[in-house]
Design a protein around this nucleic acid. Structure first.
Length: 426
RNA sequence: GUGGGAAUAGCUCAACUGGCAGAGCAUCGGACUGUGGCUCCGACGGUUGCGGGUUCGAUUCCCGUUUCCCACCCCA
């Protein structure tokens, strides 16, 4: 038997109803903040991610699905392509390509699959879904303003609350600008030098490859050492410090709770200044339900104009996971309002006509088959979760009135054809 | 990429120390020819993940492998 490949999975009803419900709420909330949908390709030139996300990141160096798309003719050039491992690079590419800076401030959102070749785990798949939003524009559009950072964070708090996820925790940090980072990295390297030999093997590796990540270490024995290491907050230049303070001031003004975590670092190279994560307890080790931050230099790194931006990605699979206990998929699954049961030879046509009419009035109708005995029709109607069963037999067609029975109460009435719509809708 | 656990019917799970592969639910049919849910009867359903080994005999023990789960790494 051919099975879904490792790390991929089928989303089936009724679960898909929950996914649609979540995406509906997301679109509603985003609309209130004037975000508009963008859809970019699922694969891009490999160099986009290499330059955008960073060659040295785990994502680029070992997790991408990359292949050589070979040209088949002189006029058809071959190139290295990659399934998108995240959304921001593609969106910024589109922003540059279509010169969208001319429109002023852009607020995009995008919902779709991403691909990373990692070992599957709870809340982690090789094809997974992200709900992504970005605010990006030329500096003159206010894209750099702390108001945008705060707006996004407040929107996320609103979204999670609206979905009924109240026990989230917002971890906030500023990773500064590239200059701050360089100085901090240097200081960190120096501070690590004398102590790193007492740390775990991972930290010894990170101390060389990416000292920032040492701050992320969870090994208990390393914590006393990490506590004494320098913090990025001590290295923020004046503009970055002011920016970060302004973000916090607005969050306090709107009443969004957060806590500063100056050990929060993010895995993608393009992040600057504001970095954040929303975490949730019910997710096991993969407790980050969403993450994001500012990326003021990304557009330039991709050869575009100055276009500060800030965005986030929600792990939709994880969002659903933390929601499943609270919202049973069945509760958001649309059910037929009526099940039409044709009864006896020649009734399929009559039933189909009636179904067509009712459906044109936006009623949700399930349709049976004339060969079913009534008992079977009732069972099918009950199984489908229909509110009513509507019997279409010779007697009904002749009389022009139809037997309509409420499956929950057992109440049955005879309804003239003209009144069916209002009766079923009631 | 590393470590631990698991895999038996569509689903949830049994099967003693190695000895006929089972139950509940679900599905289909009947009791019951135009009135469901309940009940009763019956049927269908299996390469015990896959491959090899040990054995008279393997769901059971051993090796390999695949997938899933959990954790590490990393991230959403």
């Amino acid at each position: 038997m051919i099975k879904a490949v490792r790390g991929t999975r089928d989303l089936l009803p009724p679960d898909t109803a929950l996914w649609n419900y979540v995406e509906g709420v997301v679109r509603d909330v985003f609309r209130a903040y004037n975000f508009q949908e963008i859809r970019t390709p699922i694969f891009e030139e490999t160099t986009l991610f290499a330059r955008g996300v960073g060659e040295e990141t785990d994502i680029v160096s070992k997790e991408m699905y990359t292949w050589e798309d070979r040209g088949r003719a002189e006029s058809d050039r071959g190139q290295s392509l990659t399934l998108r491992p995240e959304a921001t690079a593609g969106i910024v590419r589109a922003y540059i390509e279509h010169k969208m800076g001319d429109r002023g401030l852009n607020k995009f959102y995008c919902i779709g699959p991403m691909f990373r070749r990692e070992r599957p785990q709870k809340g982690r798949y090789r094809q997974f879904y992200q709900i992504d939003a970005e605010v990006i524009g030329p500096p003159s559009s206010g894209s750099e303003s702390p108001a945008r950072d705060a707006e996004i964070l407040e929107m996320l708090a609103t979204l999670l609350d609206r979905l009924g996820i109240s026990d989230w925790n917002l971890e906030l940090n500023s990773v500064g600008c590239p200059n701050d980072r360089a100085a901090f990295n240097e200081a960190l390297r120096k501070a690590l030098e004398p102590v790193v030999e007492h740390m775990c093997v991972d930290c010894q590796r990170r101390a060389v490859t990416n000292p920032l990540r040492v701050l992320d270490c969870k090994v208990p024995a390393d914590q006393p050492i990490i506590e004494k290491l320098p913090r990025i907050s001590q290295f923020l230049d004046e503009p970055c410090r002011t920016h970060f303070e302004a973000v916090q001031a607005i969050l306090k003004a709107v009443g969004v709770e957060f806590h500063i975590n100056d050990r929060l670092v993010r895995g993608l190279d393009y992040y600057t200044r504001t970095a954040f994560e929303f975490t949730h307890g019910a997710l096991g080790a993969q407790n980050a339900i969403l993450g994001g931050g500012r990326y003021d230099g990304l557009s330039e790194a991709l050869g575009g104009p100055a276009a500060p931006g800030i965005g986030f990605a929600i792990g939709e699979d994880r969002l659903i996971l933390s929601l499943q206990e609270k919202i049973p998929a069945d509760s958001v699954l649309p059910r037929p309002q009526a099940y039409i049961a044709p009864l006896g030879a020649g009734m399929n046509g009559e039933a189909a006509r009636l179904a067509r009419e009712l459906r044109r009035h936006d009623l949700v109708i399930e349709l049976g088959d004339e060969t079913f005995r009534l008992k079977k029709s009732f069972e099918a109607a009950t199984r489908a979760g229909a509110k009513y069963i509507l019997i279409v037999g010779e007697n009904e067609v002749k009389a022009g009135t139809f037997a309509l029975k409420n499956l929950a109460t057992g109440e049955q009435v005879s309804v003239p054809r003209a009144e069916l719509i209002s009766k079923i809708r009631a």
